[in-house]
């Protein structure tokens, strides 16, 4: 059914869901903070893909404009997040995300 109809926009959405789910699972499973960040990037990409898809489905440029903002936010997030990771890692080179539990009072 799907193949016969050619490329449906909804396929992109299914793909985006898959990417998002993989990213979310990875975020929950991995302990290396850097990898966790990469998983966050995966999820962000899944969302941008959704935006672009909807932009095409609705024939509206607004969806693509939002992606620009997502990119900016992602860039800012990566900068701050990596700054935090550098600060942590410099003091404890083998720290994992779980070790941050030490910060609990």
């Amino acid at each position: 059914m799907l193949l016969a109809a050619g490329v449906e926009p909804s396929w992109y959405l299914v793909l985006a869901s898959a990417l998002f789910a993989i990213g979310a699972t990875g975020l929950l499973v991995r302990r290396n903070p850097l990898v966790m960040f990469m998983c966050v990037e995966l999820m962000l990409n899944a969302v941008t893909l959704t935006f672009v898809t909807f932009s095409r489905m609705l024939d509206d440029i607004g969806g693509q404009a939002v992606v620009v903002f997502v990119l900016v936010v992602a860039a800012a997030e990566v900068v701050v997040g990596l700054g935090i990771i550098v600060a942590i890692m410099r003091r404890r080179p083998d720290a994992t995300a779980d070790d941050l539990a030490l910060l609990k009072g």
Binding site: L15, A18, L19, I22, G23, T25, G26, V29, R30, V35, M38, C39, L42
Partner: peptide, 8 residues
């Protein structure tokens, strides 16, 4: 998908 699984 392959890349995503590779990341995880």
């Amino acid at each position: 998908l392959a890349g995503a699984l590779g990341v995880v």
